[in-house]
Structures are given as structure tokens and as C-alpha cells.
């Protein structure tokens, strides 16, 4: 699945190119696009996906909504595991794991998205 590897790597690269400190909405959007692909690749079901989609939509209409932002950040800290798992299983085929670690150090998602200094 070289193509999927490439797709994930490119999206992660793109989020890195954005000014993450000021673009929470954009980085969250990118994160969840990658997350949805990983979820379906690994065959996992996320019962909270509908809620997350609604929260993202609320964030688009009101990017300053701290309540929604906080909730999504909490979800992200858990959802990062799925991305890590998928990337680990893809790692052997194309070395995507290296790309992931380059852009997102292991502690990256554990911290507040606002605190990122990339």
C-alpha cells in the first residue's frame, strides 16, 4: 500500500507546513482526515466519529470556541494511537514510520496543540 503510505505522509507533511500555533482548525482537520483513513485501513470502529465530525463542523463555524477545541484535543490525545498503529503496520512496506517521527515526535500529541513550536 505504497499509495496510502504516501497519502498519509503528504498530509502529515502538509500539517507541518502550516503555522500550527495559529491554525488549530486546519491541523485538526488534517489530523482527522488521516485518522479516518487509518481507522478504515486497520478495520477499527469508532463509535464517537459522528460526534467528532459534528465538533469539527462547529469549530469551522466558530474557530474561537474553546469548549469544542478542548474536547477535540482530548479526543486527539486518544486517537493518535490508531494512527501510530496503522503507521507501524505500514512501516515495513515504505518506511512511513520515519516520516511520522520526523514531523510528530512521540510526545507531540500528548501536549496541548497550542503549545507546539514547530
Amino acid at each position: 500500500m505504497k499509495l496510502l503510505n504516501d497519502l498519509i505522509a503528504r498530509r502529515l507533511e502538509l500539517s507541518k507546513d502550516l503555522e500550527l500555533n495559529n491554525n488549530n482548525l486546519k491541523s485538526i482537520w488534517h489530523f482527522y482526515e488521516v485518522y479516518k483513513l487509518c481507522l478504515n485501513f486497520s478495520g477499527k470502529i469508532d463509535p464517537t466519529m459522528k460526534l467528532k465530525n459534528k465538533l469539527i463542523r462547529r469549530l469551522i463555524t466558530n474557530p474561537e470556541n474553546i469548549f469544542v477545541l478542548g474536547k477535540l484535543k482530548r479526543f486527539i490525545s486518544e486517537d493518535v494511537n490508531i494512527i501510530e498503529l496503522t503507521l507501524n503496520s505500514l512501516e515495513e512496506s515504505s518506511g512511513i514510520g520515519e516520516v511520522f517521527e520526523d514531523f510528530y515526535p512521540q510526545s507531540f500529541f500528548a501536549i496541548n496543540l497550542d503549545d507546539r513550536n514547530l
Binding site: 504516501d6 503528504r10 479516518k36 483513513l37 485501513f41 466519529m49
Partner: peptide, 26 residues
């Protein structure tokens, strides 16, 4: 946006996974 459900992505992954395109690079 919330109406674009998860199975849309499942279909996409399936289409890529079972075609010759899966080995291509962007």
C-alpha cells in the same frame, strides 16, 4: 460535513487496496 460518513472512507481504502494503483507514489 457530518453526513459524509465513515463508510465513504472505507470504500476508498477498499478501491485502492484491490487495484494496481496501490503501489504507485504521489
Amino acid at each position: 460535513f457530518p453526513r459524509i460518513e465513515n463508510d465513504f472512507y472505507a470504500l476508498f481504502i477498499f478501491l485502492i487496496e484491490n487495484s494496481s494503483i496501490r503501489t504507485m507514489n504521489i
